[in-house]
Amino acid sequence: MTDADLSRANLSEAGLAGVDLSNADLTGADLSKANLSKANLSGAVLTGAKLDGARLFRRRSWSR
C-alpha cells in the first residue's frame, strides 16, 4: 500500500500490523483502535487522522 491515497478512509479497528504504508496519504483517516504495530509509516501524511486507541507499538511481555 505504498503511496496509497487513503485520505478520509474508515480504517477503524483495522488489522494493519506490519503493513507498508510508506508515503501513504492518511489525511483525515479514521485509524481509531487500528493495529498499526510494526507498520511502516515513514513519509506517511497523518494530518487530521484519528488515532484514538490505535496500537502503534507491539506489546512486550514482561514475564521472565
Rank of each mutant, 00 (worst) to 15 (best):
A17S: 15
W62V: 14
A34N: 01
L26T: 00
V19S: 11
L31Q: 00
A54I: 09
S22I: 00
F57D: 09
A24W: 06
R59W: 09
N40K: 15
T2Y: 09
A29W: 10
A17T: 15
S37T: 12
G53F: 09
L51W: 06
G15P: 01
L41E: 01
V45R: 14
A49W: 01
S22E: 02
A14T: 08
L21H: 02
G53A: 01
R58D: 09
A24F: 05
L6T: 02
T2E: 12
L11I: 09
V19M: 06
R8V: 07
L11K: 04
R64Q: 12
G18C: 02
S61E: 12
G28Q: 05
L31M: 05
D30N: 15
K50C: 01
K33D: 12
T47I: 11
R58Y: 07
D25M: 05
D25N: 15
G18E: 00
N35H: 05
R64C: 08
S7W: 03
A54R: 07
A54L: 03
A39C: 01
S37N: 14
K33Y: 15
G48N: 10
L56M: 11
R64L: 11
A17Q: 14
V19N: 00
D20K: 08
S12D: 12
K38F: 11
G15C: 06
D52W: 01
D3Q: 12
R8Y: 15
A39L: 04
S63E: 11
A4K: 04
N10H: 13
L46P: 07
N10V: 10
G15M: 11
D30Y: 10
R55A: 14
L16T: 08
L11T: 02
S42R: 12
D30C: 02
G43Y: 08
N40S: 05
S12V: 04
L31V: 04
L36W: 05
N35T: 01
A14L: 02
S37E: 13
R58P: 06
L11R: 05
A34W: 01
D20L: 01
K38Q: 13
T2H: 12
A44L: 04
L16E: 02
A29C: 00
D25F: 03
S22P: 01
R8D: 15
S37D: 15
L21M: 04
R8S: 11
S12F: 03
A44C: 03
S32E: 02
L16R: 03
L31S: 00
N23L: 10
K50D: 15
R8C: 08
T27D: 03
L36P: 05
G28E: 08
R60D: 10
M1G: 13
R60H: 14
A9W: 06
V45I: 14
